[in-house]
Amino acid sequence: MIVNGLLGGLIYVIMALGFTLIFGIMRIVNFAHGEFYMLGAVGVLILFGGFGVNYFVAVVAAGLLTGALGMIAERVLFRSVVGEEMPGMIMSLGLSIILQSIVLLALGPEEQTVARPFSGIWRIAGAVVPWDRTVVSISAIVVLVIFYIFLKFSRLGLAMQAVAQDPTTASLMGVESGTIYASAYGIACLLAGLGGALMAPIYTIGPYMGQNPMLKAFVVVVIGGLGSIPGAMLGGLLLGLTESVLSTLMDSTTALIASFGVVLLVVLIRPNGLLGRTVR
């Protein structure tokens, strides 16, 4: 149960980090975020499931392709609505349903699965843990560590962090804003794609598979504080764990209403999220 929660949490973190990055830097609520996750999974479905490419190679390739697609989307679509909340939301909603319909046309409405690249279980302290979930969790941690190193040590990463914290400092960092936008959206989509690619063997794959993770990312980001990277990490793990605990304690309807209550509470008590900036 805890492992399930942890894995769910890690994927939420991966999704929420990108989501919050895009919002922090571009002030765009990326409703298409779940579709990039879905594209990552579809990438694995095609490369690993279809062509038999090595699973890890397929994951990385799918992630990179998704990231590249994200950069193109940013340049062609989102650049013109940076900072405008409502048009940004509408545009990302448009992109989201276009991507859904493309995949729907290509794959059909049926959910598909790919063979599990790893099987078997191992035991820890009496708990049974499947190998595939273990590998996915470890890979997710690796992705997060790489992302963390990028943020902390690369010039671009530092600039992105600074802008997410305070958009007015953008020009001070000496990094051109177009570059920041493109890389923020691209990296966010790369993360989402990797998340989807990693999850491909665990869940079923279909055009609408991204909606739930997108929503969760949204919730995580609201709880953690929009634009706050530590907030996204904390919120993601918190949500993953509470969810798996809640779902064993009550039925899913109650769980949903309970989590809505939590969100409502957070938004009311700390409108900027748990770790958000405290400006009234």
Partner: peptide, 21 residues
């Protein structure tokens, strides 16, 4: 052809936001 409807919706949303807000 629901998938085409989605496609048309999406293209409309993006098109109007980009060219005629």
């Amino acid at each position: 052809a629901r998938e085409y409807q989605l496609m048309i919706y999406g293209v409309c949303l993006i098109g109007f936001m980009k060219f005629a807000k």
